[in-house]
Amino acid sequence: MFDLVMPSSIPCPEWDSLNWSPAFDGVVRSQFPAGMKTRRLVTAVPEIFSCAIYPTAAQLQVLLDFHDYTCAGGVLRFNWWDFRKPNDTTRLAEYQFQGRPTHGTWADIYRADLKLVLHRNFTGTFPLTDELGAQLETDTDEGLTT
C-alpha cells in the first residue's frame, strides 16, 4: 500500500491551537488488600491531536477532498509533520482523522478545526546496529531505526 501525505498546500496549524491528549488510559489499576497494583494495558497509547488552521477557500476544498476521497472518509492513515517537535522540521508522524474537519467563516476568513489520532512517529529515533556497531540498512540503503 502507498503512503498518503497531507497535501503541501494545507497551511500549518496556528501554534496557539495545538493540543495533545492521550486517546485512553493505558494503565490498569487493581486494588488489593496489600495495596494498589498497576499494569500496562498496551505498549503505546495513541494521542488525540487537535488544531485549527486558517486556509483559503481553495485550501479548504483541498482539505475536505483529501478527507472525503483520498483518505476514504477519514478511514485511511496519512503522514504529516510531527508538531510536537517544532524545531525538527523533517520529522513526520502518522495520523488518522477522528472526524470530518469542521469549518466556518467569519467575513472572508476561513477556519477549519482538525481532530486527528496521532498513531506513531513516522521516523525512528534510534538507529539499529549489528553486533559490531554498524548501522543496519534495507536493500535500498535506507537506515533502519526503532
Rank of each mutant, 00 (worst) to 15 (best):
P13M: 03
G35D: 05
T90G: 05
G99K: 15
Y95E: 05
Q31F: 02
L18K: 14
Q31H: 08
Q135S: 03
V28C: 03
E94G: 01
I109T: 15
N19E: 05
T129A: 06
N79Y: 12
L144F: 04
G26N: 13
A112L: 04
V117M: 13
L4E: 07
P101V: 11
V42C: 04
F122K: 02
A44C: 05
V42M: 04
L41W: 10
V117S: 12
P22H: 08
D68L: 05
V117C: 12
G133W: 02
L116C: 07
G104C: 00
S21T: 14
I53G: 07
L114K: 14
R120T: 06
P7Y: 08
T90M: 00
S17Q: 10
T123V: 03
M1R: 13
D68T: 15
R29K: 13
D3R: 04
L128I: 09
H67Y: 15
I10H: 12
R111M: 11
G74F: 04
R120M: 01
A134E: 13
T89P: 00
V42K: 09
A44F: 10
D141E: 10
D108W: 09
A23K: 15
A34Y: 11
L18I: 15
S30E: 09
W81M: 01
G143M: 11
A34T: 15
E142A: 04
A134P: 03
P101G: 09
A34Q: 14
A23W: 09
Q61F: 01
A93L: 02
T123K: 06
K85D: 02
T138M: 03
K37Q: 10
F2E: 06
A34R: 13
S21Q: 14
T105K: 13
C71N: 07
V75A: 10
F97Q: 11
D68C: 05
L144C: 03
Q96F: 00
D16N: 12
T56K: 07
Q135V: 10
A52W: 05
S8G: 12
L64W: 08
D113Q: 14
T146Q: 00
P86C: 01
